[in-house]
Amino acid sequence: MDKINNLNYEFKGETIKMKKTKKLVGIITLVLMLSFVLMGCTQTDNKETPNNTENQNTPNNTNTEAPNFDSKKDITVVARDSASGTRGAFHEIMKIKVKEGDTEVDKLVVGALEFDGTDKVITAVEGDKYAIGYISLGSVSNRITAAKVDGVEPTVANVISGDYTVSRPFLLVTKGEESELVKDFIEFTQSKQGQDITNEMKFVGAAESPAEYAASGLSGTIKVAGSTSVTPLMEKLQEAYTALNPGVTFEMQSNGSSQGIKAAMDGSYDIGMSSRELKDEEASELNRHVLAIDGIAVIINNENPVNDLSSENITDIYTGEKTTWAEVQ
């Protein structure tokens, strides 16, 4: 009897305990959630205080424009993926990719971030005070700052005059004899109207003395494939062209320079778009039309006090010779 009573008692204790545990678990989760939230706050606070004190201690060393900028911190190097046309051109111009006899090696610093699109490069540089990246001049916006290179502002005018040297051609390639329609469209891109659109898009028209274009009244379909960098410009040009020649339709595929060149070579597309120079074996097979010249802008965070970079410094940053902004200034 005694035992059974004991058990009963225990069971009652158990149910009370269970209710208590439920409450306890609830309270614990609440406390945990709160502490997570608070932890986030304190951690950012902690980070900010040492920065501030450091700057107060050394007011003469740091730039007065950017009180929160610690130029002794590592530069975040942002690059494009190894198959991008922008990267190919930039790394060649900046001598990051070095040819030595038969070998050609990309000396991009170990640990450089690589992204597969202009938008991601912009987002990464926008979010990191110590970042540097490169994008097409046409994609520069106020989210980031385009730095001067060797003292030259990256503007369309400077690309035209040749003062801003970080640039590459946008090409249209075709194979063999062009059909009348394709010829007419390429004529349009080289005409005054076409070049106006090109300049409006912050690219540099390449035609030397563009003529007025008159609608030809042709009809048919033109298939275009290639570089993602050329695509936005191409879309604008096609829009204007179909407005003049309503009988013409376009089929567009935006899949990268190499794919576009390949498509033009095997004849599956009429026109290939490329944002890089053709390789020798490609050039021998294709007709090459320069659509525009595109500057490549070196972009840095808006809070970065540096605004002029020498091309040697850019090379040094991208190859890992210089790792902090203090070394660059």
């Binding site: 198959a83 597969d116 320079s257 190499s258 794919q259 390949k262």
Partner: peptide
Amino acid sequence: VMEMSYAS
């Protein structure tokens, strides 16, 4: 995914 679009 990074390199597929351009690779050949």
